[in-house]
């Protein structure tokens, strides 16, 4: 299978020129194949989330190359990056990236509100499909996110990530705040989506049990890929 994402010799530095300057990535090389379920494992501060931020165009990098479908991300305009995040690469942040005082429906529909390819009349249909896909039912639609359990919140976050029908899903510690059962359910959901829809998924985790369930595991430590 062809590589959909390719990181070559990526260096990323935070607070450049300041006393608290920090080199987060030190020549990272990583390929993600299309349709792959990849686990990115490492301890806190190892640079896992930074890799996700770079792939999702939230962050830039000092040197090296990061391509998506052969396109160098650094060369994309702001508009192209936004479009990429809206239609191609979805990211689920560690805090689930949900607006707590909005309903499930409102949260899930957000990406569609910025997708010019989806007319307003189709927003509802697509949103409900995504909500159903992650195993939530009609009772959840009008409930506020704060009224849901951790596992349900994570499902909402996944529904939101899937609603635009992206090609890549990046999940940053999706099970970190969940109990064992919810954690397993969420991983199963990722596997199902990966299997059924052929979606490329990169899961960042520090939990080896979560990483084990992925097709491939890449370990990162102190800004280096130590095991691929």
């Amino acid at each position: 299978m062809k590589d959909i994402i390719k990181l070559t010799d990526i260096y990323k530095r935070y607070n450049s020129g300041k006393p608290n300057e920090f080199l987060a990535l030190k020549g990272v090389n990583l390929n993600v194949a299309e349709g792959e379920l990849l686990g990115l494992i490492g301890v806190s501060g190892s640079g896992k989330s930074t890799i996700l931020h770079i792939i999702s165009c939230l962050d830039s990098y000092e040197s090296g190359s990061c391509t998506y479908n052969g396109e160098e991300l650094k060369e994309l305009t702001e508009k192209q990056r936004n479009e990429l995040r809206n239609k191609e690469i979805s990211i689920i942040m560690q805090d689930m990236s949900l607006i707590p005082d909005d309903t499930v429906y409102k949260n899930v529909s957000i990406p569609l509100m910025f997708n010019k390819d989806v007319p307003y009349k189709d927003v509802k249909k697509k949103t409900l499909e995504a909500i159903k896909l992650v195993g939530l039912n009609d009772n959840h639609i009008k409930r506020k996110v704060t009224e849901l359990s951790g596992g349900q919140k994570q499902r909402v976050a996944i529904a939101k990530a899937l609603v635009s029908n992206p090609k890549v899903l990046l999940a940053d510690e999706p099970t970190a705040s969940l109990d064992k059962k919810s954690s397993n359910d969420i991983i199963e959901l990722f596997k199902k989506i990966n299997r059924d829809r052929g979606l490329t998924i990169v899961i960042v985790t520090h939990d080896p049990k979560v990483a084990e369930q992925c097709d491939r595991v890449v370990e990162i430590s102190d800004g280096y890929i130590v095991d691929n």
């Binding site: 999702s56 939230l58 702001e78 508009k79 936004n82 479009e83 990429l84 995040r85 809206n86 239609k87 990211i91 942040m93 990236s97 949900l98 607006i99 957000i110 990406p111 509100m113 910025f114 997708n115 939101k160 635009s164």
Partner: peptide, 16 residues
């Protein structure tokens, strides 16, 4: 800021 950060994450430009 948080709301618009999420909007930005979902593809909304900063200007918008």
């Amino acid at each position: 800021r948080y709301t618009y950060a999420l909007y930005n994450l979902s593809g909304c430009s900063i200007k918008k």
